[in-house]
Amino acid sequence: MRSRVALEPLAEEPGGGEEDAARRRTGLHAALHRWARLLSGGGAAGDDARSAPDLRVLLSVLACPLSPVPILPRLPRHVASSAQYIIEQFRATTGCGKLDDGAVKSMYASGRVRLSMLQEPSGGGGGGGRGGHGHEGSFVLWQLAPSMWLVEMSVAGQSVAAGSDGRVAWRRTPWLGAHAARGGSRPLRRALQGLDPVTIASIFSTAEHAGEKQVDGEDCFVLRLDVGPSVLSSWSDGTAEVIRHGLTGFFSQRSGLLARLEDSQLTRIQSPGVAAMYWETTIASSMSDYRAVDGGVAVAHAGTSTAHLARFGVGVRAARVVTRMEESWTIDDVAFNVPGLGPDAFIPPEEVRRSRSYGAAIAAGK
């Protein structure tokens, strides 16, 4: 599982005495198994030995999660509910109507990140007990309307990449290789973190108004989206069942801007003859420093994401083992209508295109 927070299916890394066991695990189950090994230390000892596994978990969860909801076809804009009113206010405040008319076809953004494991406040067991130092790095993101994107991130010598060719999303890491994600093409969650107002408006265009809440001292309208059962089923993989996934946006009543983004996914692992185990991944992102860029469109230039990765069920020593991690980011540059950027730049790696999961995803989309 990978965070999309959403956690996408990963192929188990080959080799070692676990080869036979890995073949018996499905992609999502294999990903969770590997995360459990990394979080438990994998037999390593000492701060230096912990650094690489910690960084792998941080990059797996925070570097390039997907939105749980795809970009929806553009609908006639009319205000018929409080949720639609909130989105229209967001469009007006960010100026993204200037992008809606098709004048902007592509986008480029670059920035800096700092990733770190956090100490669990309760001092409980599990991965949350490691404070650790932060890992600094940078990322670049390219997008081509409406659904092609590519992101690359390099942190402390480790590089990961993810992308979408408009039909299938994929991810590549040095330790797991490249693979296609289940569920077809979806936006990068990072774009929803105040970076792409058009995508944010599209994603929340069918959301429900779920009340009001104060976030960091700001009164906000709450918009909620829950992924339907049929979509959750398409994400499930053999013994791994995605039970629920929801996305919540908090829009400032004062400014109309997206102030906070939260999503949570619960996955159940049930192998034959083994008690079920549950994984819950939650990511909360706070956005700030909205500034106008090309054409006067307001984009968030800074923010922080905090992720909680929880395991519970029979066989877990503690009632609930929680790992907490954080990413802070700063946007250095944003530009629209990048010269020469076309569909060829978003072709997935050959390893992805040759995979059965990619072929199945293409067939399902026809």
Rank of each mutant, 00 (worst) to 15 (best):
L141Y: 11
D165M: 09
L195N: 02
S202T: 03
A207S: 15
G131D: 14
Y108S: 15
G217Q: 04
Q119W: 02
G128M: 08
D226V: 14
G184C: 05
G238I: 02
G127I: 01
G238N: 12
G134K: 08
V215R: 05
R224P: 03
E212N: 12
L192Q: 04
R186D: 01
L223P: 08
Q158Y: 03
L176F: 09
R172F: 00
V140A: 12
L192P: 07
A181M: 13
A145Y: 05
G217A: 10
P187E: 07
L118A: 00
L232T: 04
G194V: 00
G124Q: 14
A191L: 13
R224T: 00
H209E: 10
L232V: 04
A180H: 05
G217M: 11
L118C: 03
G163P: 11
L150K: 14
P229V: 01
R112A: 09
A210F: 07
V215G: 10
M117R: 13
P187N: 09
W142F: 14
A191I: 00
A145F: 09
G125T: 03
S185W: 02
L223G: 12
G166N: 08
P197G: 07
Q143I: 00
M148A: 09
G184Q: 12
F139L: 01
A156R: 07
R167H: 12
R112H: 09
L223T: 08
V160R: 01
S230Q: 14
G157N: 10
G111A: 05
D226R: 11
W142H: 15
H209Y: 15
D165I: 00
R130G: 06
G129W: 00
W142P: 00
Q119A: 13
V113Y: 06
A145G: 10
G157A: 11
G137Y: 07
P187S: 05
W175H: 11
V231F: 01
G132Y: 07
W149D: 02
W149G: 01
F221V: 01
D219Q: 15
T206F: 03
G177E: 08
S159Y: 02
L118S: 04
G126N: 03
P146T: 15
S164V: 10
G137I: 11
G123V: 03
G126F: 05
A207C: 10
V151R: 14
A191Y: 01
